[in-house]
Every structure is written in C-alpha cells, then in structure tokens.
Amino acid sequence: MKEAWLFTVQRLSALVLAPLVLLHLGVILYAVRDGLSAEEILARTQGSQLWGVVYGLFVFAAAIHAPIGLRAVLREWVGWRGAGLDIAMGLFGLLLLALGLRALAAVL
C-alpha cells in the first residue's frame, strides 16, 4: 500500500515536473545570455504572481519527487532500508521544501 502510494505520487509529481523542467530549461538559456546578476534575476521575478505560482508548484513537486527517487536508489544500491531511511528521506524532502520556499520568498 505504502509502496503503491509512493510510486503513484512519484509519477504524478513527474507529470507535473516534466513541463516545468522544460520551461525552466528555456528560462536558463534565456537568462544566461548576457551574464547573471541579482538585479536581472529580481527584475524578472519580483512582484510576478505567475512566477510565484509556477515556481512554487515546481518547488513542491521537486520536494516530493527527489526524496522518493533517492529512496529507491539508496534501497537498491546502498542496501539502506526500513524506517530510518524513510525518516531521512522525509527530512530531506522537508529540507528541500524549506530551502525552496525560502529561495522563492527571496526572489519574489
């Protein structure tokens, strides 16, 4: 049951992330054209609600997607299983969420 849920959530988050990553790749290529600066980044993002919603969704989806994927890799390649792993991955997800929302708050 738990595994089926993790699998389902992983695929759902992937479906959300796929178009966002494509968009993000486009933004990267656009943004680095004439060098990066804090002013340039902030000019693009500050006060933009659309930016906040899109990248907020991005942060949430990534904070779900990355720990589940990492959990699978650690189980299969490192042999780490059980509650300890699940707790560690939960914390990793929370860390990503916290740092991601902090970054979002900083640029909005």
């Binding site: 049951m1 089926a4 849920w5 699998f7 389902t8 695929r11």
Partner: peptide
Amino acid sequence: LKREVFRRTLARPP
C-alpha cells in the same frame, strides 16, 4: 500492471 496500480491507488485515496 503499473498503469492499473496507478489508477487503483488514485481511485481510493488513503
């Protein structure tokens, strides 16, 4: 099977 498990899991939220 993955497809069906995906559907079944979504059809009955925890």
